[in-house]
Design a binder for these strands. Sequence first.
DNA 1: CAGCTATGTAACCAAAAGGTCAGTATTGCT
DNA 2: AGCAATACTGACCTTTTGGTTACATAGCTG
Lengths: 220, 220
Amino acid sequence: MIKRTNKMTIMFDKKVDKKQGSIRIKSEMKILAAASDEFILQGYKGATVQSIADRAELPKANVLYYFKNKENIYHAVLEKTLDMWDQGIGDIVYEDGPRLAIEKFIAAKVKMSFQHPNASKIYAMEIIQGALHLKEFSRTYLRKWVKEKAKIFQQWIDEGKMEDIDPVKLIFLIWSTTQHYADFETQILSVMNRADYEEEDQEQVTQFLTEFVLRGTGIK
Amino acid sequence: MIKRTNKMTIMFDKKVDKKQGSIRIKSEMKILAAASDEFILQGYKGATVQSIADRAELPKANVLYYFKNKENIYHAVLEKTLDMWDQGIGDIVYEDGPRLAIEKFIAAKVKMSFQHPNASKIYAMEIIQGALHLKEFSRTYLRKWVKEKAKIFQQWIDEGKMEDIDPVKLIFLIWSTTQHYADFETQILSVMNRADYEEEDQEQVTQFLTEFVLRGTGIK
DNA sequence: CAGCTATGTAACCAAAAGGTCAGTATTGCT
DNA sequence: AGCAATACTGACCTTTTGGTTACATAGCTG
């Protein structure tokens, strides 16, 4: 079970804050990046420590030297993912008013999807599989966040600044449409007959979604 | 690699259309249902033949008697999934006009998400993991479908019946928002502090999304 | 340089899991 | 009843894989 903290804290079993560790940090980053790819491609069980080691270009035993076991690696990856999710969530504040708030929010989420698709994918897989490791996160942190932001939307609705729609469903709509470009990247590219996203895609998607949602919410 | 066919055709290695098979059919259905759950919960590698057998209340060897191997079980599950996807896709035809077409489309997709969340989840996991088994499906069938429907939307746009937006992105938007309720079921329920979806949820979601999209597309 | 800690690694081991097989039971048909 | 074909199953085998361990090397500090 993952708990939220202010700073990213990978759970070491060893003393962390020893003066040195530059090698440690570097190796750990390589391992986590490799692990992230492997977990997405193969799933938790499917990703072998060996495959992670190969991808990180380290011997297996060395990987196990830094992370006691596979579960630990996965936890660290999840921790990193949640941290990114936090950062990329954008902030909705009353003072911005509905238009600016939504523009910022969508832009942040789209950026996140295009810049860090892996984080989005890992997160999505966790949820689909039943969110065993994220139950606590959803139940507390996320629920609170949604409640808080829904309240702000409701204020705007009461002030006649936007249509009277369910703010929670609106939040889900924005989450789903933006994350879709990360999670379903393969399908989207395949359908559009393209090999990779290009610079302008992120921009176009942001613009499309922003305009669409502004119309959908009736914000002038 | 999966190819689309008119009817669901699980690939047997044995003669299928022998007169009897009522037991066979029944067992296979039990196995596929169990497998579907296990694959979602544990991923392909994580789901063991034993766990599938347990869930189906059959001995492992019996499962392997019907499906030669694990890969075969997965293929059959995928095949069933794609078939459902087909059926649930709804149809967009020019004659309906944009309003009715979108109403039908969204209703069909939402229904699909609420009635057969497993199909949506399996599909989503496949795509996220790189769509190894669905590459062909995306590249041919799906691409063609999107192109075809996008053209219809474009006609309506040209006739001034809706806003001038990218039809392909509109399709993605509807896919993502509707499937979200299946794939992220766990998160949604958790955030809403509920144990299960209820009757009226499907209806409310359909209504919310329909109205939102109609406004977003500027259909009167 | 001596000694201590951190880093790195090959070899090994036990458990798990996919799949086979040889043989038994059941069913349908004549 | 008798005989095929189908259905079923426990026992077994092999490979994979997570994890351990014993040992070597590098790097820092007094």
